[in-house]
Design a protein around this nucleic acid. Sequence first.
DNA 1: GGAATGATAGTCT
DNA 2: GACTATCATTCCG
Length: 203
Amino acid sequence: MLRATEPVGLDFFARPAEELAPVLLGCVLLHGETAGMLVETEAYLGLDDLAAHASRGLTPRTKVIFGPAGRAYVYFIYGMHSCLNISCEPTGRAGSLLVRALEPLLGLAQMAAWRGLPPHAAPRLLTSGPGRLCQAFGITRATHNGIDLLNGDSDLQLRDDGYKTPSILTTPRIGITKAADRALRFLVAGHLCVSGPARANGR
DNA sequence: GGAATGATAGTCT
DNA sequence: GACTATCATTCCG
């Protein structure tokens, strides 16, 4: 069932976000006893993408985006939520992917506990949304920002379980006001665990 | 089923 | 001092 064994290589990540985002659908995020498969991502580019944090240039907050690929960029938003990104592009160039939704695979009860939900809450409530999945995995800026997702010793890891996503849907990004017309959101068509309204997702 | 709203704190101007 | 890559709740139809 779960073949989450192969770490993903670094050179694989050192390319543009819009190219990498659809490819990472089907990869597995691993944190201790919990694991989830990526079913929805968004690409954020560099200086010419006004919706990206990195568009304002290098600041203390955005330094991970400009750093090496395959690192976790975790930021705190709206006073209460964390969001997880994966850095890409070679060092010195900005680019990242926002992880918007996962399909829970292992440790569902653990995720529910982190979310403050009953042990058998519906799986789609656990990780469908960037804020939700961070809460379910216990990911915060303080604990995970900047860590190497490709290192087998890391607390949080990204792996390739060889799953080929049958059908990928592309839509504009969600929750932004600038550059909102660019189709840089990628999701597994019709998947139960993607965020947003069902009709727009082929469900 | 869908729209509106409030909570709440880090970051940058 | 304004803004924000969100979520849960509360309405309304």
